[in-house]
């Protein structure tokens, strides 16, 4: 049969593409897994589908149920697509500081957007979603930061796909948001080959999240702590907005049109390539570039873009 029954069947099985021409080390190959090829446009389609199917299995989702989820964008977009196909309603708590295309994409699939204060970043979105869920207990809160179906989607999908397509992998590099990708795929890869090193890359978001009253307002996703995240990670580095933009642009030189967090992951992969004698580095490209066109990331003067990028959430 040469066709798929549902768009949801297209989630996963994303391609790996070599970008070693950008590697500073001729003995260190770099491959990107293009999660932007998922039908909702990001790696979060995997998580959205896994969380909804798990909730259906548990009987938590009745016909026509309403979901609520805090998201800086991609999880919300993936959930909006899945919810629309399956007939659920979705409220997404979205920080005001995301790129406008993220908001537009949510509207495509009919999600309702509840704005949380931009300066509080994703932490503020989580807090507001918790409050709204308490006020509306009939809403189903899948809560990606604590939902084990999130890392499981990567343990059963992303990780095995990488192992199938590139068993030579020595280093796995991915962005740190909910930690689902790193904890799930990272664990799977380490179980297959304990020598594989797992590197997390994060944006220096805390620098610009001015809404925190004290460090006690900080947030660590429960799945990271509960599923042994600190043991799975070998290294955690920050990719600053300038490096993220520079590498997003360099990827376009080899034809890859990816989001700004892919530039950040690539900056991490480059640092990794510089620090090893040889290796095969697989990095995750979380989404495509479409949702970031309004940031001028590829076309505007770099200093202007970097300043702008400091004020938007791109993870």
């Amino acid at each position: 049969m040469a066709y798929h029954r549902s768009v949801l069947d297209l989630i996963g099985n994303t391609p790996l593409v070599e970008v070693s021409e950008l590697s500073p080390n001729p003995e260190a190959r770099i491959l990107l897994k293009l999660e932007g090829q998922n039908p909702g446009g990001s790696v979060k389609d995997r998580v959205a589908l896994a969380m909804v199917e798990e909730a259906e299995k548990e009987g938590r989702l009745e016909k026509g149920a309403t979901l609520i989820e805090p998201s800086s964008g991609n999880t919300g977009i993936g959930l909006a697509m899945v919810a629309r196909v399956k007939g659920y309603k979705l409220n997404v708590v979205l920080p005001a500081s995301v790129s406008p295309e993220r908001r537009q994409a949510l509207e495509v699939w009919g999600a309702s957007i509840i704005e949380s204060p931009g300066p509080e970043g994703s932490n503020g979105a989580v807090r507001l979603a918790e409050r709204l869920h308490a006020e509306n207990p009939e809403w189903v809160f899948l809560y990606q930061y604590a939902n084990r179906a999130n890392p499981r989607a990567h343990y059963e999908g992303t990780g095995p796909e990488i192992w199938r397509d590139c068993p030579e992998v020595t280093h796995f590099v991915a962005g740190l948001g909910t930690s689902g990708t790193l904890v799930g795929a990272g664990r799977f890869l380490k179980e297959r080959n304990p020598k594989i090193q797992v590197w997390a890359v994060e944006p220096p978001a805390g620098e610009n999240v001015d809404g925190l009253r004290s460090l006690d307002d900080g947030y660590i996703p429960p799945i990271f702590t509960e599923l042994g995240g600190p043991e799975i990670l070998d290294r955690k580095t920050i990719a600053n907005p300038r490096d993220s933009i520079v590498w997003t642009r360099k990827l376009a030189d080899v034809g890859i049109f990816a989001g700004i967090s892919t530039g950040a992951a690539m900056a991490g992969a480059i640092r990794c390539a510089e620090s090893v004698p040889s290796g095969v580095i697989v990095a995750i490209s979380a989404d495509g570039g479409w949702k970031y066109l309004s940031t001028g990331a590829w076309t505007d003067e770099i200093d202007v873009v970097v300043e702008r990028a400091k004020r938007i959430i791109y993870f």
């Binding site: 979060k44 998201s71 800086s72 991609n74 999880t75 970043g121 994703s122 932490n123 989580v126 990606q144 930061y145 962005g175 740190l176 948001g177 909910t178 689902g180 994060e202 944006p203 220096p204 978001a205 805390g206 620098e207 999240v209 925190l212 460090l215 307002d217 900080g218 947030y219 660590i220 996703p221 920050i238 959430i313 993870f315």
Partner: peptide
Amino acid sequence: VSILPAVAGG
């Protein structure tokens, strides 16, 4: 040396 609060993404 940079000191940053832990924040969420996603």
